[in-house]
């Protein structure tokens, strides 16, 4: 009885996983198919990857994506960790306000955030471009960084810092020699999260990109709407693999779904 139940259970989970992975697998396979209009039967080729290697536009967009994600990660991780530290250490007036501010980037549809940034940046003179995208990406990453690092800080033993101070270390020494090493896994997970969010971010980049300055997702969206070849499958395959490797790395530091 319980055996048949677990067979049904595992069968169902397998079906759900199939639903999740089948389209991705087919998309990847089609990047190795000869036909430019995705005709079957399947015949293997690497031609689309060779074409991709010569595609200046996609390469430039790719470089922008990596640059932007790196910069967003650096800024969001530093600014977010500072805020998480302060919020776990001090009772500040206005702290609730910051907590409330963390809510919109996660709860308001990105379409609304992106379009209002477009309006504000346009009329305030900030304008569009990579710098505007950096502003947006960091804002979207900050709540996740603060939450992940904050969770790590909750289990941190304050006695260690007090001991360090008693032994004569100044606050900087205490932070870099005691606090940071202990919370490092949380900070690393937050940084990887931030990189993933920025690298995959489409909506804000789309509205904030001026003609000629694009990221990979923006370029892919334009291609899907204007007509495309399996080159898009090739670049999508590369992006998916990078994203999945990143998240697997995160999972080493951060348990999804609470306790293991």
């Amino acid at each position: 009885m319980s055996c048949s139940r677990s067979i049904i259970g595992f069968g169902y989970l397998a079906l759900v996983l199939l639903f999740i992975y089948l389209p991705i697998a087919i998309m990847m396979l089609m990047g190795f198919n000869v036909s430019s209009s995705y005709e079957l039967p399947f015949r293997f080729t690497l031609a689309w990857y060779q074409q991709l290697a010569d595609n200046e536009v996609l390469w430039r967009a790719g470089r922008n994506s990596v640059l932007l994600a790196s910069a967003s990660t650096a800024v969001a991780t530093i600014v977010g960790t500072m805020a998480a530290l302060a919020m776990s250490r001090y009772r500040l007036r206005g702290q609730v306000l910051l907590q409330v501010l963390l809510f919109p980037p996660m709860a308001v549809p990105w379409l609304i955030l992106a379009t209002s940034m477009l309006v504000f940046f346009y009329y305030s003179g900030i304008g569009r471009g990579l710098h505007a995208m950096l502003l947006a990406h960091v804002a979207l990453c900050l709540p996740y960084v603060i939450i992940v690092v904050g969770a790590r800080l909750q289990s941190f033993d304050r006695g260690l810092e007090e001991a360090s101070a008693t032994l004569g270390a100044n606050p900087w020494q205490t932070f870099f020699r005691v606090t940071l090493p202990v919370i490092a896994p949380g900070v690393a997970a937050a940084a990887l999260f931030a990189f993933g969010i920025s690298f995959d971010q489409f909506v804000t980049s789309y509205f904030l990109s001026p003609p000629g300055v694009t990221t990979l997702p923006v370029e892919i969206y334009a291609s899907i709407r204007k007509g495309f070849t399996p080159e898009i499958n090739a670049i999508s395959t590369i992006i998916i693999i990078v994203s999945m490797l990143l998240l697997t790395a995160v999972s080493r530091f951060y348990a999804f779904g609470g306790s293991k």
Partner: peptide, 13 residues
């Protein structure tokens, strides 16, 4: 895993 990978690409798939 796929939840954090690009939503656009999954729609394209």
């Amino acid at each position: 895993l796929p939840f954090w990978s690009n939503a656009l690409i999954r729609v394209f798939a």
